[in-house]
Design a protein around this nucleic acid. Sequence first.
DNA 1: GCATCGGTATCGATGGTCGATACAACCGTT
DNA 2: AACGGTTGTATCGACCATCGATACCGATGC
Lengths: 271, 271
Amino acid sequence: MSTQQGFERRYQAPEREPIIEVDERLFLKSAARSFYVLEAFARSPRPLSLAEVAKAAKISKSAAQRVVQTLLVLGYLERSPTGTGVVPGRRILDRSFDYLRSNPLIERATPILTELRKTCGERVDLSLFDDVTILYAIRLQSKRETFYATLSGRRMPTFATAGGRAMLAFLDDRHADDIVRRSKLAPLTPKTLVDPVLIRQRIEEARRDGYASVLEESLMGEIVVAAAVVKERNMPVGAIHIAGSLADWSAEDFRKRFAPLAIEAARALSG
Amino acid sequence: MSTQQGFERRYQAPEREPIIEVDERLFLKSAARSFYVLEAFARSPRPLSLAEVAKAAKISKSAAQRVVQTLLVLGYLERSPTGTGVVPGRRILDRSFDYLRSNPLIERATPILTELRKTCGERVDLSLFDDVTILYAIRLQSKRETFYATLSGRRMPTFATAGGRAMLAFLDDRHADDIVRRSKLAPLTPKTLVDPVLIRQRIEEARRDGYASVLEESLMGEIVVAAAVVKERNMPVGAIHIAGSLADWSAEDFRKRFAPLAIEAARALSG
DNA sequence: GCATCGGTATCGATGGTCGATACAACCGTT
DNA sequence: AACGGTTGTATCGACCATCGATACCGATGC
């Protein structure tokens, strides 16, 4: 259920690196409004009435009416089958298809992950680095998964995930600390580390070992090992996760067995 | 409702059913422009320069500049890592996450498909009906899959897929024929049926058997059985596919073994 | 050197969008 | 049966956001 729509939405100021900060005058407010409407469903995944849309997107009812009509025509919204309100439309999936297909990393990763999934028999994920969150792009489930563990497009806090920490380990301390500092350090489970000092310690371990491992920090009963995929100059761009259940494995066995596989797969994708 | 326009893009005139035809004056041209830009990547999944964007979206270079800047800020576009041009942005995945999460069918289907995947050991898909195309929403791969067979958001022609025919079998003849007629009957493989008479015959078989089966019609070496998921009034909304390789199975064995499983899963989702 | 391509920035005119408002249809409740 | 509450739909003049020609800067290439 944790929608966690991650820490604070809304795009103001990429604020990372003061690169050029798009010119106000080139920003199309009316275009942005459409996306604000679509984003309303990140907070409430159910049919929204016109009034609710207007409120969520902070626009007038009239504006909402126009945006909704437009998005209905384009297929990015659909009338709710329940009769009232609108829901996200199928055409959105076309765009995510384009995204996945346009990203060379995804394409190269797919066969490697498939192979990895076969040898492991456990869930295998590819996540993408995105500042204070990571974004799951490919998810190959094993058996018995929760609904959200199957969805790509899910975001998780960088600081609390194996993949996130594996990626932070490739940043310099200043940058990594900055990300932790800007993260909302809310525990996802009773075991989530929220003390920046402890988190930093784990990051250093990851730096030393070449992989990160978290134990029940985002889901009770779950153990994950992950290794970062890096580009030139060792910039982390993604991570390969292998996730298993403590019902099947001891933490030590799991790490010993799967960490090398994650590292190898990540290395095959790097460079 | 259904936004058809299968292969052919662009939304002019839903032209199907003269239902209310959204008021011209409520259609936000400037908002639509942003989506035209995003859709440019459906045709060419690679970085596009400003000029290319302008051309693809049929807007001026200035307009392209503004749209691109805006979408960059919002995260729906990203600068290409190769230095020049833009590519679809990660934020798109957030929206597809919202879509999947908002759709009750997807949520209900997930555990059923997971279970089905486990008992079958073959690839299992959930597709959604969308007029002349079907749209893959959930894909659980087995081993050795092609890249495109792993991507949700992929569209395939309704007439040539097992799921598509299973769904057509639940429409009345007029409607089914109409969909076939409006489809671009281009063969995907040497074995694709393109004769409307033969296609209709297969649809009738599906109606009789409660499932459809296609043999190498969309991918050589592949056999697929599928059963339709229907709503009230027996309207088809999706289909469950089970896909295997002819290297592992005879067509007959495959059908005998998996068709009942597809039917049962689809029935569990229907109603 | 010149040509061509990439992205960026400027600015006044114009027309697309704004939003208050009214309307229609549906629900329960009293 | 009129009510107050939804829902979605439709109208219209005023204004300001957007338009697009144009100029600019930097790389790259011959």
